[in-house]
């Protein structure tokens, strides 16, 4: 099979098997055997879509704890802030807002595709901002094109600070 790597397959199979355990919630032997079989077959097909490099990167306890901390505290707080400002905008008697599409520079420390994808998905998940595209210029710097419902800051760098908040710094600690 084209693009098949054993480490990627093993990593995906472990992840699939953990999902199987959590969903079936049983340790009966036939469930375990069936789970191993199903996750081995599924990950043989799916691993090349899920993992491209550094297969066991996230199986590090420190990174897992950071990831959970990021999702539960940092991301949750950003979502609450953005939701409250969105609610204030929608409940205003007269709708007047200034939409715009801005080019936001990414953190130069953040090189990996997974990190960039996670930052752009988190930007999309906060109401009021949607990432339309990530692009790379000639010098290798990454940019997000972000649709912002109410442009409060036209300077690109300061707008980036306002949109990304502390999210990118924390994702940079997880993915490098």
């Amino acid at each position: 099979m084209k693009g098949f790597k054993f480490s990627a397959w093993l990593s995906t199979a472990i992840l699939c098997f953990l999902f199987w355990l959590l969903l079936t919630w049983s340790f009966a032997p036939r469930e375990l055997i069936l789970g191993v079989l199903v996750s081995a077959i599924v990950s043989a097909f799916a691993s090349r879509f899920l993992i491209h490099s550094r297969a066991f990167y996230l199986y590090n306890p420190v990174r897992l704890v950071l990831l959970v901390f990021y999702c539960v505290i940092i991301f949750f707080w950003e979502v609450i802030k953005a939701n409250v400002s969105m609610a204030a905008l929608v409940l205003r008697p007269k709708l007047d807002y200034k939409p715009g599409i801005l080019r936001i520079p990414a953190d130069p420390e953040l090189k990996s595709d997974y990190g960039l994808a996670m930052v752009s998905n988190c930007i999309t998940l906060t109401p009021g901002t949607i990432t339309m595209e990530t692009a790379q210029d000639e010098e290798g710097r990454n940019y997000y094109y972000v649709h912002w419902i109410d442009v409060a800051e036209t300077d690109r760098d300061k707008a980036g600070e306002a949109i990304k908040g502390t999210m990118e710094r924390w994702i940079g600690r997880i993915w490098k």
């Binding site: 200034k98 939409p99 715009g100 599409i101 949607i130 339309m132 595209e133 094109y145």
Partner: peptide
């Protein structure tokens, strides 16, 4: 976010924005 991003890009190509965006880096670049 996946579906939202795809819808936003599709809408950018076909739909007419109202109100007009005050700045549009995407079209320039």
């Amino acid at each position: 976010p996946v579906s939202n991003h795809a819808l936003c890009k599709g809408a950018y190509r076909s739909a007419k924005p109202n109100p007009e965006p005050i700045l549009d880096d995407y079209k320039e670049d």
